[in-house]
């Protein structure tokens, strides 16, 4: 209807984002990359949603093997949760410093974020190693298959984010804080906070609920 009443601007209805820089609060959004990346994250959350659904269906099929209460060490999970939470706020500080053009402070905060990311990954690897030695590998039961699949996929995402962060730091060192690098840092910011958000679902649903049931 809006098109019919405004025949002078027919192309407007096909614009998913404005190409007019003055209409935006933020010039970085003009290319549409941020919205595209956001939609990628939404499709990624569908993947995680399906993995959560699989875990919900199979999570109590222990096949006479170990149950969550025998395997999970909640205190270590709490520590890993805080590593991710700290990495979220330090990435936020990096973005604020980036907006203010403070490249050195931004780099420092990104390095801190990466360190927390690596700390989280080390915790996860130690847990997987522990489970493997107990004979609780992904082949032991349907519960463990769905657990390794869900938590492993999240861990692979964190690993990808950490590698991406390292690559970005090299790019910032080489080319400085130009528009392209700023856009990339904002995309990784969305990715990083998104992984922390998925982890809320993992610790609530898999670890805490698993131990209680």
């Amino acid at each position: 209807m809006a098109n019919l009443t405004h025949p002078a601007k027919p192309a407007k209805s096909f614009d998913f984002y404005s190409t007019d820089p003055t209409s935006h609060v933020d010039g970085h959004h003009d290319t549409g990359t941020m919205l595209g990346f956001w939609i990628y994250l939404m499709s990624d959350s569908l993947i995680f949603g399906i993995l959560f659904a699989i875990y919900a269906v199979l999570g109590t099929n222990y096949a006479a093997g170990p149950a969550p209460a025998d395997l999970f060490e909640i205190k270590k999970i709490l520590l890993a949760t805080f590593f991710l939470l700290f990495s979220s706020i330090t990435y936020g500080f990096a973005v604020i410093n980036m907006q203010q053009g403070k490249e050195r402070q931004m780099t420092t905060w990104l390095l801190v974020t990466g360190a927390f990311g690596i700390a989280f990954l080390v915790m996860e690897l130690l847990e997987f190693q522990h489970l493997w030695h107990l004979g609780a590998g992904p082949g032991a039961s349907a519960f463990l298959s769905s657990f390794w699949f869900l938590v492993g996929t999240h861990g692979l995402h964190v690993l990808s984010g950490t590698i991406w962060l390292a690559v970005l730091l090299v790019q910032v060192q080489k080319h400085g804080l130009n528009e392209d690098n700023k856009r990339r840092i904002l995309c990784l910011s969305l990715f990083w906070h998104f992984l922390d958000l998925i982890w809320i679902g993992v610790f609530s649903f898999v670890y805490l609920t698993g131990v209680l049931l």
Binding site: T81, F82, I89, V95, I96, F203, L208
Partner: peptide
């Protein structure tokens, strides 16, 4: 558009409380 120190601290504080209660 990308938050301030204040909004990050509020979000972080709420997250810490909302994480600690279930654990």
């Amino acid at each position: 558009a990308h938050g301030s120190y204040r909004s990050y601290f509020i979000g972080f504080g709420l997250s810490v409380v909302l994480t600690l209660i279930p654990f």
